[in-house]
Deep mutational scan, measured.
Amino acid sequence: KAKLLVLLYAFVATDADTICIGYHANNSTDTVDTILEKNVAVTHSVNLLEDSHNGKLCKLKGIAPLQLGKCNITGWLLGNPECDSLLPARSWSYIVETPNSENGACYPGDLIDYEELREQLSSVSSLERFEIFPKESSWPNHTFNGVTVSCSHRGKSSFYRNLLWLTKKGDSYPKLTNSYVNNKGKEVLVLWGVHHPSSSDEQQSLYSNGNAYVSVASSNYNRRFTPEIAARPKVRDQHGRMNYYWTLLEPGDTIIFEATGNLIAPWYAFALSRGFESGIITSNASMHECNTKCQTPQGAINSNLPFQNIHPVTIGECPKYVRSTKLRMVTGLRNIPSIQYRGLFGAIAGFIEGGWTGMIDGWYGYHHQNEQGSGYAADQKSTQNAINGITNKVNSVIEKMNTQFTAVGKEFNNLEKRMENLNKKVDDGFLDIWTYNAELLVLLENERTLDFHDLNVKNLYEKVKSQLKNNAKEIGNGCFEFYHKCDNECMESVRNGTYDYPKYSEESKLNR
């Protein structure tokens, strides 16, 4: 008799109507990190870190770059004969040098303040090359056809396309004075040089004057150069050297050249137009028929994500570079809930034993079982409120962090190594801060989002509990077992918050 009662009780308990509160689960393989956990499985997430590029040089917003090819900045601007293909260059979106560009200054020497000139050019998007001192009329008392084997072109001695090597005419090199007034309405880049012979005999042979000088002056520039005559090792078949100089001439300003020898005179100059998204990159990537809004030396990035880990040097509207390998923000729920887990921000989770793959029309909802059958029903209101809140948060985070910009490298010469090392340390410090901030932001927001979901499920549970009161009992896994019969209409009233407690209280009292 006792065995019969136990079996009867078990049958009745199993047959009781139930309603459970749960949440969506799926077959997603997404994982995120939080402050407290690593690799948390979630139903949905968004990636904030771009880690792919196309490996190509592309047009930037429809404008092609200027590819210097086998030449570098120095060779292009001075007019190395091997860089003749660059003479027609007028406009570009950015400038590309190759790491091993070999054609710079063909006659050995240095372009002074080269690093600063590169910085200036990094904001130039177009130029006009014009004859600042016409070759045939500007130097009537001097020979202007100086050439050298060091600047050979097609097997013949030649010289820079933008400079003139002035030497004596006959047996004399009379003092020369020439000036140019900038009437271009924009900055003009003027380049010139000073020749330093290897011996007094060479000085006399070329310029006749043993104590020659070169003077260059404008409103913002004033220097006097004296040739340094000295024996030097042979470089590119030359014992002599040429140093090259430049200045930016403001609109309306005048530049005056005065010399008694050794002047490498300007022939062509450049009127410059600035462009905020221009820059110089060093890259071996090849040019393709493609378009982008962000270019790196590795390749083009076409992404609206706020961060990238491809390269710190970028041109155009680019994500911020960070050292992170993963920045994924959760938008959905835990896919593998932890039992009795309390989140960092106070939300209680884990009283549900598992997510439901059968509930596909919402994030949170119900599963019921009664004599009429069983089924899932999503709670659309709480789901939609959660979707709206999380979507707004993700968009806000992306908008705040998605300050796209150009980031170019800084140039230092060989004598500025300590400054370069200090600059690298400062840049590394800023990069570490950006990386830390980005990672911390994602970790915190992921923790908040998961706790937010847990709290929403808990609130749904409490909503049902407050309606049923003692007409049902909690069975410990997020479910309630009714003390009365609850048909589909009754189940719907529980879900929509209109459950009639008094209607079922007498039946429940008897069954309790």
Rank of each mutant, 00 (worst) to 15 (best):
E202D: 08
G252H: 13
T254Q: 13
R274P: 10
Y23C: 10
D30F: 06
N262F: 11
D33M: 11
F270K: 13
T282F: 09
L4P: 04
E97W: 04
E37Y: 06
V6G: 05
N72K: 09
V12Y: 09
C20F: 05
T148G: 00
L68E: 06
E128V: 09
Y213R: 09
A217K: 03
Y23K: 10
H239P: 13
R118F: 12
L117R: 03
H24T: 13
A10D: 05
Y94M: 04
G279M: 07
Y9D: 02
I256F: 14
I280L: 15
S137I: 13
I132S: 01
S91L: 11
T143P: 01
C83K: 06
L117P: 05
N54A: 01
F11D: 07
S208E: 09
G185W: 01
V96M: 07
G240C: 06
S152N: 14
N54C: 03
F159Y: 11
G155D: 15
L272C: 13
T14F: 01
P88C: 00
I256V: 10
I255H: 00
V181I: 13
A89H: 12
L57D: 01
L249W: 03
L189S: 03
G155V: 01
T282E: 07
E102I: 15
N220G: 13
S179C: 05
K59N: 15
K156C: 03
G55S: 08
I280W: 05
P65L: 02
R241G: 01
F257D: 00
K135V: 13
C71K: 09
R224L: 14
N26L: 04
A64Q: 12
D30A: 07
Y9V: 08
R274A: 02
F257G: 00
W139K: 00
H44K: 01
I132T: 04
D201L: 08
Y94L: 06
N27L: 05
S91K: 11
P140Q: 15
D113C: 04
P251R: 09
R274D: 04
N80L: 07
R232V: 03
L117N: 03
T247D: 09
N72G: 13
W246G: 05
Y213E: 15
S208W: 00
Y245L: 14
T260P: 00
S157F: 03
L206I: 11
T143R: 01
C151Y: 14
T29Y: 00
V147S: 14
P88G: 12
L78E: 05
R129L: 05
K168M: 10
R224K: 15
N47L: 03
S125D: 13
K61R: 12
I281H: 02
K70R: 10
P65I: 07
I280P: 02
F225V: 15
A13T: 10
L249N: 00
Y180N: 03
E50F: 11
Y173E: 08
C106F: 05
N39Y: 04
V190T: 01
H153G: 03
N243P: 03
D110C: 03
L87Y: 04
E50V: 15
S28M: 03
T74S: 10
W76Q: 03
P174A: 12
